[in-house]
Design a protein around this nucleic acid. Structure first.
Lengths: 140, 140
DNA sequence: TATTTGCATTGTAAACAATACAAATTTATA
DNA sequence: TATAAATTTGTATTGTTTACAATGCAAATA
């Protein structure tokens, strides 16, 4: 079922399927939690004990190059990946590092900067600040 | 002159001045080139031979925490810093990594997402794609 | 059915950025 | 001037990411 979805997604983005690629895509589609390479690796090792971390690195990079996933570099400490490639923004808490999905402002979806200097392929919007639970800790 | 500007900028953001902090801020204000820690370090070593790279790390982090500089995590390979803290977006070329300043779309400056879950302190907008010169290389 | 071909995967080694930490230095304050 | 506080320095260390060469695998061809 969601195996099927993973396979279809790979095909849709012109990515040759393999056991590892399907498993990684399946994980991304089931976990919209912005996982890191390590989180994906640790989780899939149970099912694919021979999995190499290098493969996870290569595969997630491949996905993002093909537009099948988004690479999030919001947190300077770690790179995260997002299987949700529909237009949306993110919020990261400065204190705890929590990463939340945020709706894009009206009209922002369609806007692209015009320039002869470059051709845009990806748009990223994110916010940094303090999340509710961290703010409450400070106030108390 | 621009020493003066650096000092004033530090004071304005409530940052205690020091020889190193003034020099680093001065560099940021004179080079809107999105330099990395290393670029700042190498350049300032000529004038301050005892400068430590750790100081550059600490100082640039301090600046960005106080809003006196922006930390750019667009390129997953390196963190860049921007002394221009007025609202603007960026473009990064996927091929060559070049980083350009881009005007923000109309109205975007004032927009902030509303949520009870967090309080926004920084907004980041950036685009990824292919720059003109890289596109020409491929076409040829 | 064998052989070839080429891409994918694996695992180790290495590069590198970033941090931790403690000693040294500088600056501020009594 | 003495004392305390803040800043800087430099080394050691951590941990993520990449490079690379060997291996595996599966489709295509003979």
């Amino acid at each position: 079922m969601s195996e099927r979805n993973a396979l279809d997604t790979l095909k849709h983005y012109g990515i040759h399927p393999s056991v590892q690629r399907i498993a990684i895509m399946d994980y991304l589609l089931k976990h919209y939690t912005h996982p890191t390479v390590d989180e994906v690796y640790v989780s899939l090792c149970k099912d694919i004990p021979t999995l190499s971390k290098t493969t996870v690195y290569n595969t997630l990079r491949l996905f993002s190059e093909h537009g099948a996933a988004q690479m999030l570099t919001i947190d300077e400490k770690k790179i995260c990946f997002d299987g949700n490639v529909t237009p949306h923004a993110h919020f990261m808490c400065r204190r705890c590092g929590k990463l939340l999905d945020v709706d894009l402002p009206e009209g922002a979806v369609d806007y692209l900067p015009e320039s002869k200097e470059f051709r845009v392929e990806e748009t990223h919007v994110y916010y940094k600040g303090i999340c509710k639970s961290c703010a409450e800790k400070t106030d108390a």
